[in-house]
């Protein structure tokens, strides 16, 4: 697996963690029972907190991934050639972490998947209100569709890396 693919995998992993954490926390029956019906404020607050958590987790995951991947490449470089010095190791790392036009094309293509999912979520949220569901449902559909869009964007990237862009 290439650097870009593994990095995408790490992003998906952190996205799933935040998604699962939100679902477990926000849809906890005890919490939901305690909330005043139709009040959007606690939901909006929770979502804002989880957006901040999501950004934090994504940054930490990427930093950890970068460090671990560099260690892996350095170890591999040493195993392949015991005489390799720091310069060789740095060169091996730089070689592996190149981002080129194919990566950008794949990113754009998969971003389109993310936008489609978010767009479908937006329409579904509006439809939910039209069909008489509470604004809380609408807000959750908004939020979850953006999260799902981000996850599917990552899955799309992996798909394009495997199948070809």
């Amino acid at each position: 697996m290439s650097y870009q693919e593994t990095r995408t995998g790490a992003s998906i992993f952190s996205g799933i963690l935040v998604f699962a954490a939100y679902c477990l926390y926000a849809f906890n029956p005890t919490r939901m029972a305690a909330l005043p019906a139709g009040d959007l404020k606690p939901w909006a607050t929770t979502m804002l907190i989880f957006i901040a958590i999501g950004i934090g987790v994504a940054i930490v995951t990427q930093i950890l991934f970068h460090i671990l991947f560099s260690i892996f490449l350095a170890a591999r470089s040493k195993i392949e050639n015991e005489q390799s010095d720091d310069k060789d190791i740095k060169r091996a790392i730089d070689r592996e972490m190149v981002e080129d036009e194919r990566d950008r094309q794949i990113e754009l293509k998969s971003m389109r998947i993310g936008f489609i999912v978010a767009g479908v979520g937006f329409v579904s949220a509006l439809l939910a209100v039209v069909f008489g569901y509470s604004p809380v449902v609408m807000l959750n559909i908004f939020y979850l569709s953006f999260m799902a869009g981000s996850l599917l964007e990552g899955a799309g990237q992996l798909f394009y890396y495997r199948r070809g862009a």
Binding site: V98, E101, R102, D103, A165
Partner: peptide, 13 residues
């Protein structure tokens, strides 16, 4: 890949 400034994966693709 190094000569043209892309990754080895791109050349493979």
């Amino acid at each position: 890949a190094e000569k043209v400034g892309v990754s080895r994966q791109t050349i493979i693709a």
